[in-house]
Simulated assay, not measured.
Amino acid sequence: MEIRNLHSGEAPPMELLLLADPSRKLVEEYLSRGETYVAVEDHRTVGVYVLLPTRPDTVELVNVAVAEELHGRGIGKSLVRHAVQTAKARGYRTLEVGTGNSSIGQLALYQKCGFRIVGVDIDFFTRHYEEEIYEDGIPCRDMIRLSQDL
Rank of each mutant, 00 (worst) to 15 (best):
N5V: 07
N5Y: 12
N5I: 06
H7K: 15
H7P: 00
E10C: 11
L16C: 06
L19H: 04
A20D: 03
S23N: 07
L26G: 01
V27D: 01
E28N: 13
E28A: 10
E28Q: 13
G34Q: 05
E41H: 07
D42H: 08
G47T: 08
V48G: 00
V50Y: 00
L51V: 11
L52T: 13
R55F: 04
D57Q: 13
D57V: 07
T58M: 02
A67N: 08
A67Q: 10
H71K: 14
G76Q: 08
L79H: 04
V80G: 02
V80C: 04
R81D: 08
Q85N: 14
T86N: 04
A89P: 03
A89I: 01
R90G: 04
G91F: 02
Y92W: 07
G100F: 03
S102N: 10
S103W: 02
I104A: 13
G105E: 12
A108F: 13
G114T: 08
R116K: 14
I117T: 15
I117V: 15
V118T: 15
D123Y: 10
F124M: 07
F125H: 06
R127S: 09
R127G: 04
H128N: 15
Y129G: 06
E130T: 12
E131F: 02
E131D: 14
E132T: 08
I133T: 06
D136G: 13
G137V: 07
I138P: 03
P139H: 10
M143S: 08
M143C: 11
